[in-house]
Amino acid sequence: MSTMSLRTKEERMKKIFPVTSIVLFVFFCALPVFAGGGKREVETGKGPVTVASKIDTEGALLGQMIIHMLQANGFTTVDKTEFGPTDVIRKAIINGEIDIYPEYTGNGGFFYDDTDPTIWKDLKKGYETVKKLEKETHDIVWLKPASANNTWAIAIRMDISKSDGVKTLEDFARYVNRGGRVKLAGSEEFVSRPDALPAFEKAYGFKLSKDQMIILSGGNTAQTEKAAAEGTDGVNLAMAYGTDGALAALGLWVLEDTKGVQPVYQPAPIVRGEVFNRYPEIEGILNPVFQGLDLVTLQTLNAKIAIEGQDAATVAKDYLEEKGFLK
């Protein structure tokens, strides 16, 4: 590049401008192909339906189940599972960027925070309320939920549970109050949100002091459960979700919420109204699958992904085939 042969100015001008313009033009046409992945409407077959989920094990599992079922019934799908956190995915479905994803009934309490909090503790009321509100506000259709309740819970080490006879939260309250050694690993959200730990404390009559807790700022239940299982820093209790796969494998027992303090979080597929209206058969395809998912089933399937490290799509497929939903 040390010398460039200069022809007359006119010649150079003639070459430079058209070349640059063409390059820029091609560029801006190509941009969206890169940007959006260039999806086109498919003439033949049904869809495409964009299926998403949050970045968690159960979300991936349920999302993959939805994909397999839709595909088996002649739909083309776009896999956007493990897409992003709740707020991103909500924006996405409201803006029509995605078509369907699994959401929890209890989350209705956040999306519509002017509702009476006790509604969400009732299985039926919660579901009906969120179904109604979502249809009215955003034209989102909630299909039938699974029976599993993936709600907030406290899990205790199996050895303490056995030795000290702690099976329910009532037992636990007694254990704490008579001075049993307690160290809970939980997230900031869990220990401070009024409907989480404080709600348990209030309902069952116990109170954990600051040095009976280890607070992780962005904690998720996999970390807290791991901490309890390994006894890290003396932790023997973990914040958990009901359907966490690790619980059985790590030797943790979920303390029963006999008084029903927590809202009910049942997963259900939710669909954009426009897509539902075009393909109402989606309901019939997915409902039977979700109805069969109870707490133990979900825990087992989650465990396969989280503990054994299997891939969500494979686990979903194997399950659906086993149950005869897929051939």
Binding site: M1, S2, T3, L6
Partner: peptide, 16 residues
């Protein structure tokens, strides 16, 4: 960035 001869040759090159 140019050699001595390229430097000297600038104007003649401009004049083709």
């Amino acid at each position: 960035h140019m050699t001595v001869s390229d430097n000297i040759a600038v104007v003649p090159k401009l004049l083709s």
